[in-house]
Each structure stands twice: as C-alpha cells, then as structure tokens.
Simulated assay, not measured.
Amino acid sequence: MTTGTILITGASSGLGEEMARQFADLGYDLALAARRAERLEALSAEIRERHPNRRVELHALDVNDDDAVFAVFGAVAEQFGTLDRVVINAGLGKGAPLGTGRYDANKETAMTNFVAALAQTEAAMEIFRRQGSGHLVMISSISALRGMRKTITAYAATKAGVAALAEGLINENVKAKGIDVSIIYPGYIRSEMNEKVAQNTKFMVDTATGVKAMVAAIEKRKERAYVPAWPWVPIGFALKHAPMGVVRRLS
C-alpha cells in the first residue's frame, strides 16, 4: 500500500534526488522530472532495487519550457489518476553582483527559479483545484528572507518571489478548498548546486541530514519551515528583523 503520489521537479541531483529517495522510503509512489534523463534512470533503478513495489515514473523536463511543464504535470496526473503532492524544487544557483557584466547569469537564474516556478505553480494548482485536494510544496531558501549581497543578490530575490507566490495562495485560503501549501526555507545543505562552496562553511550539513529535516516539515504540511530548525529558526528570525548592518554581517 502506498502513502500517496508525489511529483518532484529537479529530481536528478541535489535536494530533489535525495527527497525522492526519502519519500520512496516513506512509501510514496513518485513522478520524477528533470532535464538529465540518464540521471533519473539511475535514480529510478536505485529506488526500485530498494523498493521493488514502488512505482516510479520518469519525465525529461526543462522547466523553462512552459508548454512542456503543463504537458508533463498533466501526464503525471493522468498516469496516477490523482496527484497528492507537487514539490517545486528545480532551480539554479548562478549569479554575479549586479552591474558587473553578468546579466546573462542573473537572468538565467531568474527565469529558472522564478518564472519557471510560476509555470509549475500554475500547472500544479490547476490539477489540485480540479481534484479538490493536493499539497503544493515550494522550495525557497533562507536567503529569501532579506536582500542578499554580491553573487546571491538575484538568487535570493528569485527565492523571495517563490515564497511570495506560495504565501499568496495561503492568503487566498486554498486550504479551505482542500489544498495545503508549504514554503520550505533550507539553510546551508550540501548539494550539487553548492559543491564549489568551501567544505568548512559554518552550519553546512550533509545532503541526507538536511533533506531529512525538509521531508519531516513537508510531511507535517507546515505552512513555513526553516530547515534544519537549528540554527536556522533563530538565524531566520534575525535575518528577517535585524537592521541591514546586522544582516550584512550575518550574510
């Protein structure tokens, strides 16, 4: 017996890949979407070896292709008959200080992290509104809480936008229509996106540990969660409320 069905985007690496493993361990059937089909195949084989009865459907998807997003989300809902949860996770970490000649990198991050997230949100919510049920999970970032400097300015802005989309749905009270919405704010979790960051970065945790905290918060259907809770709950409070001079030192 399965726990339910989950669609995860950006599932071929990093947080998405590990979420797939951990949700499979909890008994969920999975739809995994990402650009790198060969990585999805390897992950699917790994999951099926551990859980022979687990259903895993794979979809090659570039989230920047709007038509493909709506087509894939619709296909997943049709394949499973119902879609219980969508995790909007696909993203980029590229960026440069504004005005330093790398508009291309900042724009690419903005398009993938925010515009593509909007398309995914639209596609997921169409399905959930039709079903009268569902759980939308938006993966934001602790950096979304305030404007960040230098290489992560654009990235942080996109993640703030993602959180605002989700908060708008919470404000709409879609919960009254059977739809839960969760905004997850990961702190420093080791992943492919940040593999070039110094290994001794303060408060950085390994992928499995960080994702375990994310999955726990998602399973509780929390509207907002800073993960792992320690030290990101107090740091998140400080980031959100401290003067910019303090934020500058914290970031």
Rank of each mutant, 00 (worst) to 15 (best):
L61C: 05
L83C: 11
I183E: 13
A154N: 04
D62L: 12
M148P: 02
G178I: 10
G4W: 04
Q131W: 14
I6F: 01
V76C: 01
G14H: 02
S143C: 12
N171D: 12
A20K: 02
L145I: 14
D180W: 14
I47V: 10
K175T: 11
H51P: 13
H241K: 04
A123Q: 05
L239D: 01
T153Y: 03
K175I: 14
A156K: 06
M148R: 04
A216Q: 14
E192T: 12
G245C: 00
N173C: 06
R21Y: 05
D25P: 02
E192Y: 04
Y28V: 02
L58T: 05
K94R: 15
P231L: 11
M125R: 08
G210Y: 07
S13N: 14
Q199D: 09
A164V: 10
I8M: 05
E17D: 11
A117N: 03
K222V: 00
A156T: 06
L239H: 00
A45C: 05
G147M: 07
M214D: 12
I179A: 07
I152S: 11
A96W: 04
S12W: 15
V76H: 00
Q120P: 06
P97F: 08
A31I: 02
T207Y: 06
E122D: 14
E172Y: 13
M125H: 06
E223A: 15
A164G: 13
S251C: 01
V233H: 04
I47M: 09
R129L: 12
S143R: 09
E57N: 11
A229D: 11
T158R: 07
R39A: 10
A156P: 07
A157F: 07
D206N: 13
Y103K: 07
G245V: 01
